[in-house]
Amino acid sequence: MKKSISSLVSSKGRYPWPAEQFIWDNNCRINLANYLTDRKEKIGIIAKGCDSRNIVTHIVENKIKREQIHIIGVPCNGMIDKTKISSLFDREITGYSETGDTITIKTISDEKNIHKNEVLNSNCTTCTHRNPVIYDELVADLVEEQIIEDPFPDVRRIEEMTADEKWNHFEELLKNCIRCYACRNACPLCYCPTCFVDESGPQWVGKGQDTTDVRTFHYLRAYHCAGRCTDCGACVEACPMDINVRDFTRKLNKDSLEIYGWEAGLDETKRPPLDVYSPEDPNDFIKYAGHGIL
């Protein structure tokens, strides 16, 4: 028996029947770990590879306890990119269905079958942790992990730019940002009770559309995610302006991997590298070390 959403929302009790309404398809891009923050009750959660890494990060950061959650793991072979799909059509999309890896899209005048790999989300194309890293049960057999020789071609392209080219790249990237903060709100890592952009005493950053303020928001948010980001893509998914904010976090993911051999959310017993001190931490960015070096 189907019940209306309003009866679902207003009901105080919890029943198993709404679970029958759950749909899982190639569009389940958002990251449900975002809903675990500081919850006290026992929760069941469905998690793809990336989501499970954010759950691990939440556990490490004391945002939820392992024993509070029952994780239904989904071995994943990627989600699809809604922007790539809509760019294939001139008209508004009026119908969507999928059978296995074939996606069927309808517009008022057209119908096309597309293989999902042609329209994969860009974070999924380089994902090497498609299987959940922790789970209590699995809904399907584990999938084969991708071996990616060059996981950061996009970051390298930016690294190779001159300072001015980089500046222009980010200027262009953010030119349509309306500071709606949907990227931040969709990200499981951004759980600060008061985000620095909302703080008013002191006010760390202006609240308008000044490009310096817009950049400051994005740079600082990215740094707050350093060594914690799982490249789940929820931030990009949430952005109404189709801004690839992962251009910021991916550089930090690359650095975390190259400098600390670290990928976020793989181990419940380890804290992110910027959270811990080790005598082995590289410090070659310290110039003028020792005396008389100048």
Partner: peptide
């Protein structure tokens, strides 16, 4: 991010 590396120093 486009800031010249000459402007950033740590010691």
């Amino acid at each position: 991010m486009g800031i010249e590396k000459e402007r950033l120093h740590f010691s």
